[in-house]
Design a protein around this nucleic acid. Sequence first.
RNA 1: GCCGCGAUGGCGGAAUUGGUAGACGCACGGGACUCAAAAUCCCGCGAUCGCAAGGUCAUGAGAGUUCGAUUCUCUCUCGCGGCACCA
Length: 969
Amino acid sequence: MSKRDFRGVEAKWQKKWEEDGVYQAKDHAKNEKFYGLIEFPYPSGEGLHVGHPRSYTAIDAVTRKQRMSGKNVLFPIGWDAFGLPTENFAIKNKIKPQEATKKNIANFTRQLKSIGFGFDWSREIDTTDPTYYKWTQWQFLKFFNSFYDEQEQRARPIEELPAHLDKDEHRMAYKAASTINWCPRCKIGLANEEAIGGVCERCGNPTEKREKAQWMIRITKYAERLIKDLDSVDYLDKIKAQQINWIGKSEGAFVDFQVGKDTVTVFTTRPDTLFGATYLVMAPEHPLVQRWVEDGSIMNQDEVRSYQAETASKSEIERGDESKDKTGVELKGVQAVNPANGEKIPVWISDYVLATYGTGSIMAVPAHDERDHAFAKKFGLPIDIVVEPVTGEPRENEEFRRSIVAIVRNPKNGKLLSINWGKKGGSLFVGGGLEDGEDPETCAVREIREETGYKNVKFIEKSETVHHHYFAASKNVARNIEAVGLLFELSDEERDEAVLEKDEQGQFTVEWLTEAQAEKQVIDGLHGYLFQKFIQGTCYSEPGIATNSDFLDGLPTWKAKDDMISWLNEQGKGEKATTYKLRDWVFSRQRYWGEPIPIIHCPKCGQVGVPENELPLMLPDVDAYQPTDSGESPLAAIREWVEVKCPNCGGKAERETDTMPNWAGSSWYFLRYCDPHNDKALADPEKLKYWMPVNLYNGGMEHTTLHLLYSRFWYKFLWDMGIVPEECGSEPYAKRRSHGLILAEGGEKMSKSKGNVVNPDDVVEAYGADVFRVYEMFMGPFDQPVPWDTNGIEGVRKFLEKVWNLYGLDSSLRGNDNPELVTLYHQTIKKVTDGIDHLQFNTCISQMMILANAFQDAGSVPESMKEGFLKILAPFAPHMAEEIWEHLGMKGSIHVSGWPTYDPEKLKAATFELVVQVNGKVRAKITVDSDISEEDAKSKALESASKWIEGKTPKQIIYVTGKLVSIVA
RNA sequence: GCCGCGAUGGCGGAAUUGGUAGACGCACGGGACUCAAAAUCCCGCGAUCGCAAGGUCAUGAGAGUUCGAUUCUCUCUCGCGGCACCA
């Protein structure tokens, strides 16, 4: 293929494939399906970015391989076309968003087609098409007409709501006055997920808080299931972690504090520190505070009011700034009672307590919480340390308790940490002398050697006898962060060998001190530790364990977490509780270019859904759709659209004027692909049963807590409601992967302002689609960010030209299949077969390059390999593979021609290089038969390495089959 | 601070049940072909010592386990991504 005609060849095949419907998914097929999905693009005015094809080519290659393997493949494409950028672009250029969208889609289509993706274009969808958004609106009505059944843990139709409950208070979609994130630049309300860090996701402007009635969807009801069901899917670990983190589950308890006649409920994850709660802090916005201000319970009303006003005026960023000093005001005249010990404690308000999380109030335990501690220090509030006496409740392990010095529990992960306090230089030291840069384990080994005089100190797998224990720790104790609990044991019976071993908790044990010494350490240790912390007033540790009862006098006592919860339960002062950071989904947008929310407000009937037979509720065609500062949707100005009759009573009513966020259309598009032209349902259940779930879904990490979370939730809702059949399973995507960003040549982010953006059109024009595709797959690991490299693309061009020339050199392909080439060929088929499945495209290409180089050395492609090699190349360079395929005189498209197989027998070469190591160093390499016996291998190895052994008798000879011989001399 | 990921030649990166570190590509150097250039092909290409044969060092730093560690364990440093006063 000369440089001149590749575009022609590519265009030819693109046309032919479409005409022949090569990539069309079949609906009522008997064979196995494979549903590969890429995030459908937002057709922006800028056109395709080189990042898009990275993801698309990857999934294209996977689906092409699946198709060649005989699967019925669905690899669809569509447009997520509603949204702000188009609307803003349209306003700026004084055209209609409809027109801008149409133009952009046409451009994207041209670009995507020029790269030769195997999309099934017959299933193309567009979220702005009324035949599509009709169903988005229909689904919104389902949310509106349903509630969440807490007992059954699923959504159900609103008609089934128990009669004593108010429907409007339980709908899955509900309108409520709420504080929203308002972006003054975009003039739009944002969901929490879109205003992370108090900054607008779109424009980067700081957001403000505004009170506004918004449509919300109760995604929070699904928090637990959204976490739990991650167990059943194959997502990248970092995606799972990010979602779990975002949902932010915390387990703990609600605890009631009496404040006069009122009860303030706090949420805490540490009910076991309740004895150390020395004051209460409430969010300034807390309704009770509001009431107390109004009814005069608070003496310093003015001060409180002004603090409240100050808080309200702060932006999210200011309020979230941790570096600033804690502020707050005491509510004078108000006192709370600590339910654990009956003590009267003060009540404060402070902006470090968030109104939107937990109960909006906390109990402050300054001895064991850093933030409370800072606050207490600043305002001179009391700090009480909570201590667990070791002589109290027996622990699981008697031995463990007997000689421990002190235990600190890491608050973040609950791990136990044993510590020792010594007087070395007045600072905390560990293990008796952890040297700089030394880890506790190493230290332990060293010390055991020194103390016992035994050289041979070994770790063994499991402890049989645990005699005595000693401490260990890490220097991080001082900071109370991560630490390793190390315990050592030296068995009495085995005096000739000190043994280090791991017990079930993963801790190492060894005897180290006499019991008397250990006893002393215990007492000194805890005293020293707690005493110092107490004096310094810097204790925000976990409860310590004390054996010295004198010391315990005057310190608050301790109950384990679960014990405390049951005690609270018995006393009626609290209960077990779980909270989440996740908030309900703000579903209203005050903009034009979105799906109108199909609700009618009737003064008599309240909120009424638009009757299903009136869907789609069309977006009116208007001239003025600029956003307004008032926060009203532009639709509100179109009176003839707004004014309707109530479908219920026929009286005068008004339409809802908010539109949906663009996450609406993308929350269910993968379902529509299964049946894109259905006008009776969003998709035929039978087709859903066949196609769902998506086998492989690839998309950007930036959607992890947005689209990916929303669509999982949306899908679960449809599944609960029976709209998605039971058989499809509770998760929409069986496997989710994410591609790395493509950076600009210098390693920076590509951006228009820096002028370093690579345009796919230019690359395709200069090198052709195949080179572009192969390069994108070769440039680096798929999930890793990689910089664009113009020289690198040249290398790929050479590779493809080499292949082209190999097939075209002379018409007589010689049958020169020497044994090495056969082995390499089979290895390559295996590598590419496995590599595509594991999304390791870069090494697939490398391996094909190796084989191509070997073909070149051999003079040509052997007859027996010419089809197979072309086939494994086809997913990456579909045009060239097809063209050569035709030249070879093959019938039909290569892309449905079957996937080549490899012979496992032929993966191994007849001989291999046996590596000979002496004392761990490579000393010789000898070529031996693959089926060499162990004895022969060893003797040959000894022979070849005789120089290094010098007549000594080897202590040990290790043979690794097919690899090496290691001689210990 | 928390969660997750990462660190290997001049560059992108290979190498997983622990077994030849640097595959493949780029860049660079040399050669062939050519009047010349481009293209193509061949050879070399981690550092260091050595004429060479060969040796020594080397996968962010330090330690450990092992006959053997890029790979496992621990401590630390730096970088990237996400979250962040979430009780």
